[in-house]
Design a protein around this nucleic acid. Structure first.
Ligand SMILES: [Mn+2]
Ligand SMILES: [Mn+2]
Ligand SMILES: [Mn+2]
Ligand SMILES: [Mn+2]
Lengths: 146, 146
DNA sequence: CCTGAAATGTAGTCGCAGCTACACTTTCTG
DNA sequence: CAGAAAGTGTAGCTGCGACTACATTTCAGG
């Protein structure tokens, strides 16, 4: 007979903590897809096309890396592309990009609102955004409208 | 002759954006080490030892994964361990754990302060914490003392 | 309209973080 | 104190995201 999960002083319960870390890992694995979707949408909107080289330069990675990751987006139904013809977003990809872009803005705004300097806010938001849940996002929105 | 880097409407300049994404990638690669250090310190403080199985259960990963990652921490000079004898932190590891723990608390407190519900704050902080720079952290602290 | 530069694609390698399976050691317990 | 249970370690596999090197295709200037 195994002992019942005895809670430890100050620490969350074991399954609770495991679930939290697990969700964080999941969020992390979608982070790159989110950034690609957002960036591709931005490029399509501002310059009319999203070429692998441009994506790569903006992300600071090699073009080979960008191309491989775009292949993953295609596998996941977020993007389309044909050889030598640039990258586009599917409906799902555009929807993701829109959500991600709105969230990005909100996170930056919240950081600015609590006194974080502009460049730090932009920098940190790039990572933070991927870990902000809908509940938290709603709280940010409420806070900003107060 | 290559065209001068013409800025694009609404988008950050190319090198700026690349630098931001790069820093985010770097932060991400230290995230796991940070969580391990914090957790090992917590276990040592609360139950007196940090066994691979406990670490694994708390993180929600297999014990094999925990052991491999601890090996990486040892390589990086953050932890020590001997076969079948549990894991300990080096001075560097303890210093990291202390910083990480303080930052974790501050992030949760900030989220709570702007109206994020308790569980969402705890959950999201687990990922957010790894992307909060010192500048942002200072701003959080100032805000909380307003 | 040719040709060289730029972009694109592909192959192969690496480290990390996950997993399962299995072997071995330590600890607990009847 | 012997055997069972629990913990530990190792091997081998996967996918991802990064890289370099090289081959191929497109495209723009002369
Ligand atoms: Mn981002
Ligand atoms: Mn973003
Ligand atoms: Mn964390
Ligand atoms: Mn933490």
């Amino acid at each position: 007979m195994s002992r019942p999960p005895e809670p430890i002083l100050g620490l969350p319960t074991e399954p609770t903590q495991a679930r939290r870390f697990g969700k964080t890992r999941t969020a992390q694995s979608s982070a790159i897809a989110e950034d690609y979707a957002e960036l591709i949408a931005d490029l399509l909107a501002s310059v009319g096309e999203a070429r692998p080289t441009d994506i790569a330069r903006r992300l600071g990675v090699s073009h080979a890396t960008a191309i491989k990751t775009v292949a993953r987006l295609k596998r996941e139904g977020l993007a389309t592309s044909r050889p030598y013809r640039g990258v586009f977003l599917t409906e799902a990809g555009e929807a993701l990009a829109a959500r991600v872009k709105a969230r990005h803005r909100l996170v930056v705004d919240l950081l600015r609102a609590v006194g974080v300097p502009a460049e730090a806010a932009e920098q940190d938001a790039e990572g933070i955004e991927h870990h902000v849940s809908d509940v938290t996002l709603a709280a940010f929105e409420a806070y900003l409208q107060r």
